[in-house]
Amino acid sequence: MGLQNAINGIPLEWYLIVAAALFSIGLYGVLARKNAVAMLMGVELMLNSVNLNLLAFWRYLAPESAAGLAFAAFVFVVAAAETAVGLALIIAVYRSLKSVDPETLTQLKL
């Protein structure tokens, strides 16, 4: 039970810090990468950091209700649906342009 004790000894804040770091990395990925697939991965990181947050809050603050768990399940189902649609759109654009860089999309300008 050494591992269990070690996990129980981690304060809530640490989870929140890791989640915030993960969210920031995802944010950076969306804003700085020039590849739609990498941007999609950034969004996924952001959503995963949310799940980490939710589960930590659930475990530490409200373990008696399943709301946190249910919420996390919703988030990853939505993330999966979003990825499916996103990859399809990226492939459609790649077929036309042979590129996945959103900055090459310049049909719509003032």
Partner: peptide
């Protein structure tokens, strides 16, 4: 296609903020 990809990337980005 451009509209869809732009809408998707910004929309998914925004929902990341919302759910966080």
């Amino acid at each position: 296609e451009e509209a869809a990809l732009k809408y998707f990337l910004t929309g998914a980005f925004a929902s990341g903020f919302l759910v966080y």
